[in-house]
């Protein structure tokens, strides 16, 4: 018991000293010493203290994923409710810095924070699909009018091909070639609009989650 406490105290002292020097190898070595304190800990509380220290060192090295893993190994039952909430908020902070906003929101919810997050209104898939029957309208709906212009030109070329071939009596070229060309240009436009819509919607979702998280994690993030 005494040996563990002594080792742990030395670890804390050394980690403070070395982290001030800001040397990577030293800090990582200190993180491994904290892991030793976890291994030798006799009570969950001691293990938690060591893990928190390890997380702090990893945070100073901007190793957020490893920090989140260290925090995830804390024995939650041995923490006080306010400590538990603090740990979950730190995990949310790590997830935010790793741009995993879904995980960050779920950590905050677990911490009992009422984020009040409401999913923003997204662009409708059905509307996009119907509007793309008139090619440029679909592109305008997903805020890409220039791409719409390009796609319309390509569709016009396909139609021009069909008309010119059929008018000069080349029915096979007109119908077969036209079918292939329209398959590319018209159905390609449907596919592209669906792709752009998905991109836009995920950007909207990401941005709204980010704004919501900044509001709640602001004080933590300002400490960085």
């Amino acid at each position: 018991m005494r040996r563990t406490t002594l080792l742990f105290s030395i670890s804390i002292f050394l980690s403070a000293a070395f982290s001030l020097r800001g040397q990577d190898a030293d800090s990582l070595y200190m993180a491994s010493l904290c892991e030793k304190a976890v291994f030798e800990a006799e009570t969950p509380r001691q293990a938690n203290q060591a893990l928190l220290e390890k997380a702090r060192i990893l945070h100073s090295q901007q190793l957020y994923r490893q920090e989140m893993e260290a925090l995830g190994r804390l024995r939650m039952f041995a923490l006080r409710p306010e400590q538990r909430s603090e740990v979950l908020q730190r995990q949310a902070c790590c997830a935010y810095l790793l741009e995993d906003y879904d995980a960050a929101l779920s950590f905050l919810e677990e911490a009992g924070v009422d984020t009040g997050y409401v999913q923003p209104k997204l662009k409708s898939e059905w509307a996009a699909m119907f509007l793309t029957f008139l090619v440029p309208a679909g592109y305008v709906y997903v805020d890409e009018p220039w791409e719409g212009l390009l796609s319309t030109s390509l569709n016009a070329l396909s139609v021009l091909w069909i008309v010119s071939q059929i008018s000069s009596g080349c029915y096979v070229s007109g119908i077969l070639g036209g079918a292939i060309a329209l398959n590319g240009t018209y159905l390609g436009a449907q596919k592209r609009v669906a792709q752009l819509l998905q991109q836009r919607n995920s950007e909207i979702l990401k941005e709204s989650k980010k704004n919501c998280l900044v509001h709640f994690l602001g004080p933590h993030l300002r400490e960085e």
Partner: peptide, 19 residues
């Protein structure tokens, strides 16, 4: 052995080379 058995191999490297 504990570090290597618990997917903490990077910690094992830091510990072995830092001690």
């Amino acid at each position: 052995d504990y570090l290597l058995g618990n997917s903490l191999s990077s910690d094992a490297v830091y510990y072995l080379f830092g001690s």
